[in-house]
């Protein structure tokens, strides 16, 4: 075990995968000499050379299209998109090509590309360095979508992503790249997809979160505990495939659900989770499902602290669900 920050864990995961498999390579803007603008790829160029660490021209469709070609040919490319906010020039490649290659070829052409990209607010990044648009990708059949919230999961889920036979969107909560650190297993220790992580056991209300909202949910649970409310916190971490059983089981136990995400509420991931709980656990619910999310506005720069969910808003929503039933 080694104590690492989240971004260091990403770095160690990449290095581990590259040492184990010569077919693994990374490509993206500023990933080589500069080691990535967040230093996620720091040191990789020196260890693995230019053939496996490609500084690319500034074109997201070029990065993803090239990565797709590499994967079709049998390499395991890990593409970095510098910010999720800048992924849209590659949206056609991701949605029309990457997600559909296996399907449209009847299984002849698997396309196991990993796309790593920092996402989310709280870093004073304004409209274009802050957004959480994971729902676009969750909505597209053929993509897996995972979001770690701890250093151990960052490395473990990344190793699983690189081993996976399908394309994976690996979203990294940049707000907690360095503010969160923790013990990370050495070596090739993988965390499976499709399993939620129980952060904190509780009996009165289930708080569902992922990425940078997990520490927020935990902080809210501390506040609630002091008031005598026992909150369970679940880190979903794998949005596609989703651990539906864990979500349903938690609500069957607590009878209340609060869903937290940074993304805008309308058609956000919370809408899908709320629908799932209504379909599968309606009769266990003692109160309406609550969502604590970003608002249905673009992401504001100066007022981001008011836009983003915080512990006070999450605790408030949890209290309301406990009071109402």
């Amino acid at each position: 075990m080694t104590e690492l920050t989240l971004v260091q864990a990403v770095n160690r995961g990449l290095a581990e995968a590259m040492r184990r498999d010569p077919n693994v390579l990374v490509l993206g803007e500023d990933v080589g000499v500069n080691g990535g603008v967040f230093r996620a790829t720091d040191g990789l160029l020196k260890e693995f050379g230019e053939e496996r660490v490609l500084d690319t021209p500034l074109s997201e469709t070029g990065i993803v299209g090239t990565a797709i070609g590499m994967a079709l040919y049998g390499l395991k490319p890990v593409a970095e998109i510098q910010f999720l906010d800048f992924i849209y020039p590659a949206f056609d490649q991701i949605v029309s090509e990457l997600a559909k290659f296996r399907y449209r070829s009847g299984g002849q052409y698997p396309c196991p590309v990993v796309i790593r990209t920092p996402y989310g607010g709280g870093i004073k990044g304004g409209l274009y360095h802050s957004q959480s648009t994971e729902a676009y990708f969750c909505h597209t059949a053929g993509l897996k979508v995972v979001i770690p919230s701890t250093p151990a999961d960052a490395k473990g889920l990344l190793l699983t992503a690189i081993q996976d036979e399908d394309p994976v969107m690996f979203l990294e909560p940049k707000r907690i790249y360095r503010s969160v650190s923790g013990e990370v297993p050495d070596g090739d220790v993988r965390v499976p997809f499709g399993r939620a992580r129980l952060v904190r056991d509780g009996t009165d209300v289930s708080i569902f979160a992922y990425g940078a909202m997990v520490p927020v949910a935990s902080e809210a649970a501390d506040t609630l505990a002091a008031e005598g409310i026992s909150a369970e916190v679940i880190d979903l971490r794998s949005l596609v495939p989703l651990d539906e059983a864990a979500a349903v089981a938690s609500v069957e136990k607590t009878g209340r659900a609060v869903i937290v995400h940074e993304a805008a509420r309308f058609c956000g991931f919370g809408a899908e989770l709320a629908a799932l709980l209504a379909e599968k656990a309606l009769y266990s619910l003692k109160a309406p499902i609550a969502r604590v999310t970003g608002y249905d506005t673009p992401f504001p720069y100066a007022l981001e602290h008011l836009y983003l969910p915080n512990a006070a808003r999450v605790a408030h929503a949890a209290r309301e669900t406990v009071r109402s039933g």
Binding site: L25, E51, R52, L54, T61, G62, V64, G65, T66, A67, I68, G69, M70, A71, L72, Y73, G74, L75, P77, D92, Q93, S96, E97
Partner: peptide, 16 residues
């Protein structure tokens, strides 16, 4: 969309 993919496959072939 196939144009960038062909470039990626060519780089991969050279790598191999």
């Amino acid at each position: 969309t196939q144009i960038t993919q062909a470039v990626g496959a060519a780089i991969a072939a050279r790598r191999k």
